[in-house]
């Protein structure tokens, strides 16, 4: 599929420029686009119009699932599946189950947060056409980039490039897949 446009890439020189450019891209109604900066730019998520992340909900559900499973497993093993008297305590000694319940709750929350974040970001990716651009390497150094994917309903090839140029980009290019 060589030759099909994949993404429009615009390069900016400062954090201030990309911040305002993001506001314009957001207001133009694009949905499949991203900003790439060498360091976190405060407030960029608002300039991009990104809503709240769904990761906390995943973490919450995972945390309660983990804590619940851990408690249930201990309660079931000790009081039903394999009841043993330990330290003269009753079979169903909820106090003894709390540390493991807490730890497994934390473990599930951490794993849910990590895996949820990766899944929502569609990571890991083995290939992304952005890396065809030699200039894009500087997004980890001293340059700021906006990329608009070709499958965005508002993407119009050369027209989009001109739009990005108009936002003050120091360089724009169309990357093919």
């Amino acid at each position: 599929m060589v030759g099909k446009p994949s993404v429009a890439l615009a390069e900016f020189d400062t954090a201030g420029e990309i911040y305002h450019a993001c506001e314009h891209v957001r207001d133009a109604g694009f949905s499949r686009w991203d900003a790439h900066t060498p360091f976190p730019v405060h407030g960029l998520d608002k300039a991009m119009g990104i809503g709240r992340s769904r990761v906390p909900w995943i973490a919450l559900v995972c945390g309660f699932t983990g804590a619940g499973l851990a408690f249930w497993l201990q309660a079931w093993v000790h009081s039903s599946a394999y009841p043993l008297v330990i330290n003269a305590k009753p079979y169903m000694s909820w106090q003894a189950y709390i540390p493991v319940t807490f730890e497994v709750g934390v473990l599930f929350t951490a794993l849910g947060t990590l895996i949820g974040m990766l899944a929502l970001n569609r990571l890991p990716q083995h290939y992304n056409s952005l890396f065809k651009s030699a200039r894009f390497e500087r997004s980890t150094d001293d340059k700021f980039f906006i990329s608009i994917a070709a499958d965005d309903p508002r993407f119009q090839g050369e027209e989009t490039l001109r739009f990005l140029q108009g936002l003050g980009a120091s360089h724009v290019e169309l990357i093919e897949d």
Binding site: N87, A88, Q95, A96, I98, P99
Partner: peptide, 12 residues
């Protein structure tokens, strides 16, 4: 608070 209670409860 739980740690205080738990250790006392466990050691008995």
């Amino acid at each position: 608070s739980f740690s205080q209670y738990f250790l006392i409860w466990y050691a008995n």
